[in-house]
Simulated scan of single mutants.
Amino acid sequence: MEIFTSWPSWAHAEGPLAKALPTPTVDTLREAVAFARRQHGVQQRPTGRPYLEHLLEALEVAVTGARLVDRDMLVAIVLHDVLEDTPCTESEVARRFGPRAATLVRWVTKPRGGVKADYLASLVKAPPQAVLVKLADRVSNVQELQRMPWRFQRRYYLETVAYIMPLAGVHPWFAQWFGEWRAQWRRVERWPAG
């Protein structure tokens, strides 16, 4: 199972992106990363690492793993949490990066006050591009799940198997990656529910 953690900053991501994508797409991604950095500010991942690392991991998953090249989808991957975790609005994303990117971000945003299971179940109705955004996000989140407390590991593993893995069929690379991941983590299914 491949792990995607080699882009902890834009300086690490820019060179590989320039080799894989057209210059205008890289320029837009540079702007999206700067925008996300401003929006998320000092927010951190549960592990205490800067939040921007998660966004760049998801982008690395999409570009170097799944070989995605669609500009709006890649922008949405970078911005996938701005509506959920910051004061940023969908109209602001649309104004800066276009309505298609903003729509993809909205699809992967859990509604405020919504039930997470309902939100995850609703993704079966999402456009394939939005599903790919969510899959890249989840690969970043689960690839190093061992860093989290065991109760979180179990809950997140079961949630991923129930709601995210069924979506992976839209792209063979994601289906294979999640299959390998599940094989490594299957032991979690035997852990007590506590």
Rank of each mutant, 00 (worst) to 15 (best):
W10Y: 06
L52A: 04
A20Y: 08
P50C: 05
K19V: 10
A102R: 10
A193V: 14
L56R: 01
T28A: 15
G48M: 13
R49T: 09
C88P: 03
L132D: 00
F97A: 01
G113E: 08
W7N: 03
V188H: 05
V26G: 01
R45C: 09
M73G: 06
L135Y: 02
H171C: 05
Y156A: 10
R37E: 15
L56N: 01
Q153W: 02
L79W: 05
L74D: 09
D72V: 09
E14G: 03
V170I: 13
A18R: 15
H40Y: 13
G179Y: 11
R155A: 14
G15L: 11
A13I: 09
V42W: 01
P22I: 11
L123M: 14
V161H: 03
P50Q: 08
E57W: 04
V161T: 14
A11L: 12
H171P: 01
W177A: 03
M1Q: 08
T25E: 05
R155V: 15
L135K: 08
G114L: 10
V63S: 06
E144C: 05
V78F: 04
V69H: 15
V161R: 07
R187D: 11
D85L: 14
F97D: 00
V75T: 15
R112W: 06
P24Y: 11
F152W: 15
M165I: 15
W181V: 01
E189F: 06
E180H: 14
V82Y: 07
L68A: 05
D137L: 05
T5V: 14
F4L: 08
R112T: 12
A126M: 02
S6G: 14
G65K: 12
